[in-house]
Amino acid sequence: MTLIDRLRSFAAQAFGMTSDGKADTGTDEALAAIALLVHVARADGTLAPAEAERLSRLVQGRYAETRNQADALIARAAAFDAETRDMADLVEMMGHGADHEERLRLVAMAWSLATADGAVHEFEEALVYRLGTLLGLTEDEVGRARTDMPATA
């Protein structure tokens, strides 16, 4: 059983996913994307109130209709992130179906989270650049995504 298969099996058991591997609210890909955002939000070792608020608004704006749905997805994604050893595993869970614009949007959301507390720490910056690289974006694209942060930020 591959690592991805084990992660999917864990997700099915831990997060109430259906037998076909889809989450009740959202897809595997969405859960992995939210887990990546949680990972970035916690990059400096803490989830500050401003980061938690921004994360909730970003998830509600993109993956959920209501605040309660967003918070439930974030809780599931946070547990998923805690069980995952590396961001690369989460990127792999997203699959290769995400188009270029979706990958850029995810990096812009990550930048938005990194700036939520008023300062981008060196570790957060390196993490967002690594995320962009794992998503197949160039350094220039990752840098430009910083100026294209979502309006909900």
Rank of each mutant, 00 (worst) to 15 (best):
L7R: 06
R8L: 14
S9L: 10
F10G: 04
A11G: 11
A11F: 08
A12S: 11
Q13K: 08
Q13D: 14
Q13N: 11
A14Q: 11
A14C: 05
A14D: 14
A14N: 02
F15Q: 11
F15A: 13
G16Q: 07
G16L: 11
S19G: 08
T27M: 12
T27G: 14
A30C: 05
A30E: 15
A30I: 09
A33K: 01
A33T: 02
A33Q: 12
A33Y: 00
A33D: 08
L37G: 06
A41C: 06
A41R: 01
A43N: 11
D44N: 11
G45V: 06
T46V: 10
T46K: 06
T46A: 14
L47H: 03
L47I: 05
A48C: 05
A48N: 10
E51G: 07
E51W: 00
S56F: 02
L58W: 01
V59R: 00
R62W: 05
Y63E: 15
E65T: 07
T66L: 13
R67I: 12
R67G: 09
R67P: 01
N68G: 09
Q69G: 15
D71E: 15
D71L: 13
A72V: 08
A72T: 10
L73D: 15
A75G: 13
A75R: 03
R76F: 08
R76S: 15
A79Q: 13
A79D: 15
D81T: 02
D81N: 04
E83G: 01
R85H: 05
D86L: 07
D86R: 01
D86K: 00
M87Q: 08
M87L: 11
A88V: 11
D89S: 07
L90C: 06
V91A: 11
E92C: 02
M94T: 10
M94F: 00
G95P: 02
G97S: 12
A98Q: 06
H100S: 09
R103F: 03
L104R: 06
L104V: 12
L104G: 10
R105H: 07
R105S: 14
L106D: 10
L106Y: 00
L106N: 04
V107E: 12
V107L: 09
M109G: 12
L113A: 01
A114I: 04
T115W: 01
A116S: 12
D117G: 03
A119C: 03
V120Y: 02
V120L: 08
E122S: 10
F123K: 06
E124Q: 09
E124N: 02
E124P: 03
A126C: 04
A126M: 10
A126Q: 12
A126T: 12
V128D: 05
V128Y: 03
Y129K: 03
R130I: 02
L131A: 09
L131C: 11
L131G: 08
T133D: 15
T133W: 01
L134Y: 02
L135M: 15
L135H: 05
L137I: 07
L137N: 06
L137R: 01
T138Y: 06
T138I: 06
E139H: 00
D140S: 08
G143P: 03
R144C: 07
A145F: 01
D148T: 07
D148L: 11
D148P: 03
M149F: 00
M149R: 10
M149Q: 14
A153M: 12
